[in-house]
Amino acid sequence: MMRSDEASSRRDLMAYDAVAKFFHWLVVVLIAAQFVIGWTMPDIHKDTRPDGLIAWHLGVGATLIAVVVLRIVWRFTHRPTPAALSPVLSVVSHITHGLLYVALVVVPVLGWANASSRGWSVRLLGLLPYPAIAQTGSPTGHAMGDIHGVLAWVLFALIALHVAAALFHRFVLRDRIVQRMLP
């Protein structure tokens, strides 16, 4: 017969299903690609064309939007088993995850608005066009590009906090929280 703490530990490890884990790690890969592309692509000016790394940034961003939407839908329809955390860590975890989800939606949507204001096409997998969400030449749409850049750094900070928390759980608290999302 299994002891109750062993059963709880096993339940915590099975908290996220394979689909949730897939979406999590796919978002990690897409975000990593976006940051690398974003840091290495040329600056965008008035007459910049969406070629090369800029086109890649748009394509990965379009994919990221679709995957994050699917991830959010999955998360709301497939709630994981709550982790056994202290009340303080539980609140901090919920706030951090909430901010991550908001940033994962807002940052790419702002980039999409900026691309729309430049008359650039945003396409999922290079095929399915997304509708323009800002008029071509829109000063607001152009400003969204600046906000996109700033909030990308906020997203980066949130990701760093998320990774630091995972390392804290693994090496300081020595609990099994990190294993819940490992493949």
Rank of each mutant, 00 (worst) to 15 (best):
M1Y: 13
S4C: 04
D5P: 03
E6W: 01
A7H: 01
S8F: 08
R11G: 05
L13F: 03
A15S: 15
K21G: 05
K21D: 00
F22E: 04
W25L: 04
L26W: 00
V27W: 00
V27F: 02
V28H: 00
L30H: 05
A32H: 03
A33G: 09
I37Y: 01
G38R: 13
G38P: 03
G38H: 12
G38K: 12
W39H: 12
W39S: 11
T40D: 06
P42M: 09
D43A: 13
D43C: 05
D43T: 11
H45W: 03
T48N: 08
T48G: 06
R49C: 04
R49T: 03
P50E: 05
G52Q: 07
L53R: 11
A55Q: 08
W56R: 07
H57V: 10
L58R: 08
G59P: 06
G61R: 13
T63I: 09
L64A: 06
I65S: 05
I65H: 09
V67W: 08
V68D: 02
V69H: 07
L70V: 11
V73I: 15
F76V: 13
F76W: 12
H78R: 14
A83R: 11
A83W: 06
A84S: 12
S86H: 02
V88F: 12
L89A: 15
L89P: 03
S90H: 11
S90K: 13
S90V: 01
V91I: 11
V92W: 06
S93A: 14
S93Q: 09
H94I: 00
T96D: 07
G98L: 10
Y101N: 01
Y101F: 11
L104D: 00
L104G: 08
V105A: 08
V106R: 00
V107P: 08
P108M: 06
V109E: 00
L110P: 07
L110R: 02
G111F: 06
W112L: 08
A113M: 12
N114L: 03
N114Q: 06
S117R: 10
G119D: 08
W120C: 06
V122T: 14
L125P: 07
L128N: 04
L128C: 04
L128W: 14
Y130N: 09
A132Q: 10
A134Y: 15
Q135C: 01
T136R: 06
T136I: 09
S138H: 14
S138Y: 15
T140R: 14
A143V: 01
M144V: 03
H148W: 01
G149R: 02
G149Y: 05
V150A: 15
W153M: 12
V154N: 04
V154F: 11
L155E: 02
F156M: 13
F156I: 07
A157T: 05
A157C: 10
A160E: 01
A160K: 03
V163A: 14
V163T: 05
A165G: 09
A166L: 13
F168I: 12
H169R: 06
H169V: 14
V172G: 03
V172C: 07
L173V: 14
D175L: 13
D175P: 11
I177G: 02
Q179R: 10
Q179G: 12
P183A: 10
P183D: 04
